[in-house]
């Protein structure tokens, strides 16, 4: 069973490596959006520092959302998604595997590049560590919830914009918790509650979202 899931993971990663520009575009978007903020709100270091958690999280959230459209649409267009419905494995596990691959390709690079942007916004070392940790816990949630939206908009005109409307309201809890964790460290408070809730949310999303996504894929291919 794990062999076929592993095969799928390997295929998606191979495809991403052969077309690295897709993943790089997402990282580029993240960097550009964060860099635009100081131009819009002024260079005052303290002010930027206080806005940094929210800015970084909103930018990461938008970057993930932007990449979601590609999650299933390529497989949908060339017919491989159809073939996946015929595979012995439960569709839920297959979409979970694809979502994991998607996170490795888009979410993880965001986590890795975030310290650089955090330095630009004058965050201190302990805040940067917390930011990376919160993003590490939070970006999988974004990918998991996003996979539902990606599946629901398969084959629709203007799917990308529609994903935003469907998914962004659902991104409120991870945004609050993730940005809040960094904020807490900034104000000398403990971020443990934030991280615990974020972790709980990730576990819940891990178990719940693949089935919703699988149902959505079946409906859109029906």
């Amino acid at each position: 069973m794990f062999r076929s899931l592993f095969a799928l993971l390997r295929r998606d990663l191979t495809l991403a490596l052969r077309r690295p520009q897709d993943a790089l575009t997402v990282v580029g978007f993240f960097v550009v959006v964060v860099s635009l903020f100081p131009l819009g709100i002024g260079p005052d270091p303290e002010f930027l520092r206080s806005l940094a958690p929210g800015v970084l999280w909103v930018a990461a959230l938008l970057a993930v959302m932007l990449s979601l459209e590609r999650l299933f649409s390529d497989d949908y267009r060339d017919g491989t998604l159809e073939q996946m419905l015929l595979v012995p494995e439960p569709l839920g596990l297959l979409v979970l595997t694809k979502t994991f691959a998607h996170w490795l390709i888009t979410g993880l690079p965001l986590v890795l590049i975030s310290p650089l942007l955090a330095v630009q916004l004058n965050l201190r070392v302990d805040e940067i560590v917390m930011l990376m940790f919160a993003l590490l816990l939070g970006t999988p949630i974004l990918s998991l919830i996003g996979s539902i939206g990606a599946a629901l908009t398969l084959g629709l005109r203007g799917g990308g914009v529609l994903i935003a409307l469907l998914i962004l309201p659902l991104y409120v809890p991870p945004l609050i918790l993730g940005a809040g964790a960094v904020d807490a460290v900034m104000h000398g408070a403990s971020a443990q509650a934030h991280l615990s809730l974020l972790g709980a949310m990730m576990v819940f999303a891990l178990f719940a979202t693949p089935w919703a996504t699988a149902a959505a894929v079946r409906i859109m291919l029906d």
Binding site: R11, L15, R77, D78, G79, T80, E82, Q83, L86, P88
Partner: peptide, 17 residues
Amino acid sequence: GSCLGYLGHHNALKEDL
């Protein structure tokens, strides 16, 4: 899929593989 193979309009091939 264990009992049937489906060949539809699409070839279900990845262009990059």
